[in-house]
Design a binder for these strands. Structure first.
Lengths: 155, 155
DNA sequence: AATAATGAAGGTCAAAGAAAGTCAAAACAG
DNA sequence: CTGTTTTGACTTTCTTTGACCTTCATTATT
């Protein structure tokens, strides 16, 4: 079965496109529309629209309350540079690393093939060895690959 | 008496034919259908659908989870498949690895950007750690990336 | 005018549910 | 006896649900 959370995610993203990266919505209304618990909206926002996903959320409670989602626009080079110099750090989990690559893909900083290539290099399975060193190695490789991407400028 | 694992293998292969080499299935559903333990599905996949058998598996847990099986086009990717299943082996030096990638580039298996990306991931410097494990890790990562290239069909 | 009550939002968190993964022991086939 | 298959207990990951909490605007009361 298709996950409801994924459907809601897509829905919000399509709304965001129509409204040029900024959007205000009503939590209960949306929950009603999808016939789910209101807190599921929070779940979707937390797991798919966090800052690390490239979004910023603000909200207000009480009568006339709302949730506003803003699509952050970051400069590609700044972002890549930030990742290599501080974002990734000296160790990174598989989950966090894949998340970064997915973001690079969604922001169109890299092509799907490149994303696939990078992802394939940083999974636990790829690295193979069972050791705490894994996260260190992964960080090194990911930074190295992103550095290669930075060097692509203009082909 | 035909072994169940063989029956499941055949079943999955027939599904793959119907669906043009790519297929998503539910582990529990399949286990249910064959009245076996769910983990037997994993066994079948591990012993008959590995990369060296010419397949690539990805999956997701949790609600709405799935297992996806992709059939790698071994004929078309003969050389790549050879590299992954025997050519590279369990350890490889930086020099030999870079040489292989260069060759893939020259023979047009991969684009210049991809070659650059792959190279950036397999240097001693990228892997970072000073250890005899380096060559093992490099072999693993290189094989994983070449497998990703094999899975590109049509993308 | 100041305060209290009400209702309409949204927030949090933990438990339950729905998958898939791992591993090793037991069973079996040759 | 040896290698492969089958089973099942336990783990991990991700999603869904619901009970309870907080905030705010509006309206009623003093």
């Amino acid at each position: 079965m298709a996950r409801l959370s994924d459907v809601i995610e897509k829905f919000i993203k399509s709304l965001l496109e129509e409204s040029e990266g900024e959007l205000e919505l009503q939590r209960n209304e949306l929950a009603d529309y999808f016939e789910c618990a209101p807190s599921q909206i929070n779940y979707v926002l937390a797991t798919r629209f966090s800052v690390s996903h490239g979004y910023y959320i603000e909200s207000r409670r009480g009568g006339g309350g709302y949730i506003r989602i803003v699509c952050l626009d970051v400069d590609k080079n700044n972002f890549l540079h930030y990742l290599v110099s501080e974002g990734i750090g000296s160790r990174i989990t598989e989950h966090d690393a894949l998340h970064i690559v997915q973001r690079l893909l969604e922001q169109n900083y890299i092509a799907p093939k490149s994303a696939g290539l990078i992802k394939s290099a940083i999974t636990d399975k790829a690295i193979g060895i069972p050791s705490t060193l894994k996260d260190t190695i992964r960080a090194n490789i990911l930074k190295s690959m992103i550095t290669a991407v930075m060097a692509w400028q203009g082909k």
